[in-house]
Amino acid sequence: MIFFSSPLFYFCVAQMENYTYNSLILQLEGLRITKTNKHPVFLFLLLTYVFILIANVGIVFLIWTERSLHQPMYLLFCNLSVNDVMGNSLLVPLLAYIHVPPSERFIHYYECVMQAFTSHMYGTNAHTVLMIMAFDRYVAICNPLQYATIMTGKMVIKLTVSAWGVAFVLVGILLGLTIRLNRCRTLIMNPYCDNPSLFKLSCDSVFINNVYGFTFTVVLLSSSIGSIILTYSKITAACLTNKSKSLNSKALKTCSTHLCLYLIMLLSGTIPIILHRFLQYTEYRKISAILFYIVPGSLNPIIYGLQSQEIHRCLSNILQLRKK
């Protein structure tokens, strides 16, 4: 993100919001950070981002370079790691830059729109990618004999394109409805730009935006939760009818990992949505909105890496080769 280097100029521009419409300079409300805790906050954001970057890029590189990990389960997980890197690279360095030390925080409107688009892509992708990962686990456990014929390389590509394509279209419409609006305000009531904060700048009717936004959320959550419930119900039924201990053990490990990732993402994303409806909890909403990026991005590679014996084996082989 490119911020302008003359805060005084943009402060003067911001003061003219009552007299002009469609100002291209917006101001972020940000977090309430005091002088005493600005350095710990900056250090926390910096270290968190470095860890997220190293952990997710590292696991993608490991899967890409190790032939034994060229399996649909791991290849689909790479989408989640790429999404975590994309979302956190957009948000965390920006937060560290503009919030520490506390100052006037200005951003160009077009940069704000791109930031909102990417942030909603991150959240939507998290759902769609975990949905295709659930489909992979369903096929592997409920149809093990047909797994190789169903989950081919082409199928992995189709599922990946579908997950990202659906998210792109849904979010594109969401932001398209917002950028058509005229703006009569310049203050973003959030530490970063998102769609609700953008259309709240408008004095036009936002009825269509609210309807589509509500429909978007309901369709995404119902599809996501519904697919997880359906696939895991069938997986549970398959495990109960099959007396193979090895199959049940494999299902428990892989499915518990996937379900844990899903629950973390769902909980992290639901809390900010709920707090958006309660104005008295504004600061808590801001913090929870930031944690929606940080928590899954940090925990996803750890949980997936700890539960995968194949990843353990590859890492141990690499470490042993380095010792030699």
Results as ranks from 00 to 15, higher is better:
N143T: 05
L170I: 13
Y122P: 02
F11W: 04
A96D: 07
N37V: 10
Y262L: 09
G176P: 07
I132Y: 05
V218D: 06
S224R: 05
T241I: 13
H276V: 10
H39D: 02
F214I: 12
N83M: 00
T241H: 10
L170P: 07
L75M: 13
S197A: 00
S119L: 03
F61G: 09
V218A: 14
L26I: 01
S288E: 02
H99C: 04
P272W: 01
I302V: 04
L90I: 01
V113Y: 08
L259P: 02
Y110T: 13
T282I: 07
S23F: 04
Y74V: 07
R180S: 11
K35N: 15
N125G: 11
T186Q: 06
N143V: 03
S162K: 14
R105V: 09
R105I: 07
Y138C: 10
H108P: 04
L247G: 07
L26Q: 05
L230V: 09
Y138E: 13
M265E: 08
I264G: 06
V50K: 09
V60M: 09
L315F: 15
I235K: 02
K323V: 13
T241N: 14
I318P: 12
M1G: 08
F11I: 10
V171G: 03
K323S: 13
S256R: 15
G123F: 03
F4G: 15
V171D: 08
K200M: 00
H312E: 06
S81C: 07
G213P: 01
Y147A: 10
